[in-house]
Design a binder for these strands. Structure first.
Lengths: 191, 191, 191, 191
DNA sequence: TATGAATGAGGTTTCATTCAT
DNA sequence: CATGAATGAAACCTCATTCAT
């Protein structure tokens, strides 16, 4: 008769994460209120607090679930010899990870200031620096170091920016990957 | 002995902009409250509203004052032939403009989500696309197009990211510029 | 001994409406702050916002609840033949409705300028015009048309003004009704 | 060259009153800010304070200038015998006064709640009661007393309300006056 | 005769969060 | 597993007013 209560069989937690990430990515973290999330789910704010202790925790949980591949990538890379081949593999896997966790990466890129204030900020930054350090060599000339950083930025550029301009995302991703590969290769050639 | 009223002779507007930008860059736009800005200036919130109609207007005014060089650069580039030389000059000038307006650019990079919601967001995006369009060629192969975008991203990378890692900012900037030049050159070679 | 938290069991909404109307009528809408309403109820301002989306909505909700009889009256009158008897019945019922919703009508009369700016303003005005149109006849001579309007104004006069001067409100209301009846009758005699 | 300062030769005070009344009547007293008045005059708020001590004083000054005729009318009526003829003359002159000070009367009618809080409120109310007392007779039957009050309300009705409905204001005013005369006459017939 | 700069009080509204049920 | 009711803090903003110049 009246619109039924729609019993959510234990997947509410996941639904909250989905809606939250969608809104965070769309409007930014600060501009997204718990009221909004709750409303879109047709649930009360209090329900969110049953599943998560704080607003920040919602974001953290998404983050933890999504970025595991990168953690694994870093762990793996730590054990490999720091050859060009290793670095290429890193870029390849990084590009793939970014692709599957797209919305979150977009969010992180666009909300760096916010991230910095949150407790995950540190984590993210450390991870980023770790990635760069695994690609870079202290003794290399500065431009080559820049190339390494730029390789990663290029992957981001490919993902974040070109999506507005070009058609096929996968094709774009591969083009970006190619350029990144090129950069890292070049960083090795002369030096 | 107690802090005197200190009649600020007409430079208050500028001071507000300075402090605001500093805080915006440090904490993000949303997290920075007008109370904070006012307190740091030892002025009341109402004083801010005497000089600016809204919080957003403070940011806009900073933006307008700082990004004029880029506007001029785009206007200039529009009239030049689209040769490699022109593009190199664009990158050179862009790098310089970014350098002198450093804090604001850092802010914009780290608060993209916020920027998107604000009225300047559109402006910034248009400008960015214009820059890219002036560097890019529609008919070029995708990777070369990516190289053009990446050239700009590299300048940002050099500015935003490496500052945390390396010592001399000017040296870093030049290294980034060199890599960007390299990218744009390469985008022209094969294609 | 200190005033206990007093859990208000679900009638808070009503209480807010009561206190709000009282204050609105006493001091005017604009001069009445939400702080005042909240304080008198020993509740926080935020509590008001749990029950109503805006200050205006508080007024609207009171309005909607109180003026339903008038809406019904107008609907009813629309279906009747426009005879003197009908009009007399209209005045009778209008007088009664005004009497039971006394405070609100007083408020509306004394805050016309405010009402005009609010979203209900339109509604009220339309209703008023509808009433007048149901009493008036386009072809009648001007003074007779004035008599019809004046009949309604007389009911208001009886309620709003004489209450300060005379003793028994019910008696006064009836006297006003009598005069209004007289006016409407006279408007029919010659014409 | 630049838009000239437009020296206002001593009539600024008057101009302020004009603009203020216009806005007060349009939006209500509370909703009209000094900023608005100043802006419409292309003058600073401080300038208003050169001419008037407070916001309220602006209203008072308008009031004093406009309602002198009514004061004189009341003084005059106090010395006359309280005959029907006198009362008719009162209504006639009241109607005229209301007509020439139209905007202010409209303002007062629509901002009764505000008026009550202001220092003029008392004055206005006293005057109103005085008028009514000069028309009314304590010993008369209630309906006849209502008729007297209603006579004045009818003049207001004619002015405030019918202006939205009918064409020629002067004609409407006269019609209202006729009805008012009729009411006062009737109040004398039986009693 | 006016302005430019500033203030202090207060306005409405929103937010993350809590807790008894 | 979730809600209804409420809170305290703080946000942005506006207002009437003042005063040195």
């Amino acid at each position: 008769m009246s619109s039924s209560p729609q019993p959510r069989r234990g997947n509410t937690r996941q639904l909250i994460q989905d809606v939250a990430l969608e809104l965070f990515a769309e409007q930014g973290y600060e501009k997204t209120s718990l009221r909004e999330i709750a409303e879109r789910l047709e649930v009360t704010k209090a329900a969110l607090y049953y599943h998560f202790k704080t607003k920040e925790e919602i974001l953290i949980s998404i983050f933890d679930d999504t970025t595991r591949p990168i953690d694994e990538l870093i762990a793996w890379a730590g054990e490999q010899p720091r050859t060009l081949a290793t670095k290429k593999e890193m870029l390849r896997r990084y590009s793939e990870a970014m692709c599957s966790g797209g919305q979150l990466y977009r969010f992180m890129q666009e909300n760096q200031a916010t991230m910095r204030e949150l407790s995950i900020g540190e984590t993210v930054k450390k991870r980023m620096l770790k990635m760069v350090d695994l690609l870079r060599t202290d003794e290399a000339p500065l431009p080559n170091q820049v190339r390494c950083v730029s390789a990663i930025f290029t992957l981001h550029a490919g993902m974040m920016f070109l999506q507005h301009v070009e058609a096929d995302p996968e094709e774009t991703r591969l083009a970006a990957l190619e350029v990144a590969m090129d950069l890292i290769t070049r960083a090795h050639e002369e030096g």
